[in-house]
């Protein structure tokens, strides 16, 4: 993204944890315009009256068609290999990476991870230290992963057949809800320290979820958080979703989470 006005698509950076080099796959347009250039442009097109000469082209094209098409390709690639892919979404600090560290430690082999963050490879390194293969996608100014980033991450990661693939989205309860990545299931992690009003405040995210994990339940004695309220509100938005209260720190109820994954 262009640092002048925030426009454009910069290529997300993909880094394999444990490798020093970064793969820059810059795609799309370049960020060669600025506010100044926009001003120059105003003089390149003289004061014509184009409205008289225009005509209408009916397009009827889905705006996210390209993303959805790539997501379907990812889904087909993963399904062919028997790989279960889960898209983990939450606000920053809800405990996604801690949950994955524990999940990797307790489920042994057969797990690989795509980590999404705006910057740093901290999370991919944590995952690698926990014993799984990981690639980091740095989105720069981007606030969510998209299907193209996941496709490129899969090319680097090359998960083995029959593995479980976790895609840890950028911490954000808004934007990731809209972008299909090709996952089999969408999982929203909400921690008890965030407040129990989140489903109604961020309805799109909960409407898209297959599973809500209520994390950090070891802290329930210290906060005003009503798990039943979250469950009721989330089900009003999305009657079909599952909900599991867990603690990634103490391990409480995590067997329910592992069972849920095994049933995908």
């Amino acid at each position: 993204m262009c640092s002048t006005c925030g426009c454009g698509t910069d290529g997300a950076r993909i880094t394999v944890a444990g490798h020093e080099h970064t793969h820059d796959h810059i795609s799309g347009r370049t960020d060669d315009h600025s506010l100044d250039r926009a001003h120059e442009h105003a003089h390149e097109h003289p004061h014509e009256h184009p409205v008289d000469r225009t005509h209408t082209l009916e397009l009827e094209v889905a705006v996210l068609a390209r993303n959805d098409h790539l997501a379907e390709q990812n889904r087909a690639w993963l399904t062919e290999r028997g790989i279960r892919a889960l898209n983990l979404m939450s606000s920053p600090g809800a405990g996604k990476t801690t949950l994955l560290e524990r999940t990797i430690a307790e489920s042994g082999t057969g797990v690989s991870v795509i980590e999404g963050d705006q910057e740093t490879v901290f999370d991919a390194e944590r995952i690698r230290a926990a014993g799984a293969r990981a690639v980091q996608v740095n989105t720069g100014a981007g606030c969510h992963l998209d299907a193209d980033m996941v496709r490129r991450a899969l090319e680097e990661l090359r998960p083995d057949p029959a593995e479980t693939l976790f895609i840890e989205n950028v911490g954000n309860l808004v934007c990731p809800a809209l972008f299909d990545l090709g996952e089999a299931r969408k999982v929203v992690v909400i921690s008890v320290t965030e407040g129990d009003d989140k489903p109604l405040k961020y309805p799109h995210m909960f409407a898209a979820a297959d599973l809500v994990l209520v994390n950090k339940i070891d802290l329930l004695p210290y906060v005003d958080f009503d798990v039943h309220r979250v469950e009721r509100d989330a089900r009003e938005l999305n009657p079909g979703l599952d909900l599991l209260p867990v603690s990634a720190r103490t391990g409480e109820n995590l067997t329910d989470w592992y069972d849920w994954i095994s049933q995908i």
Binding site: V51, T54, H55, T56, L57, E58, L59, E60, V61, A62, V63, L64
Partner: peptide, 8 residues
């Protein structure tokens, strides 16, 4: 979420 038409 669709582009319905354009004027060109």
């Amino acid at each position: 979420l669709q582009v319905s038409s354009v004027e060109v």
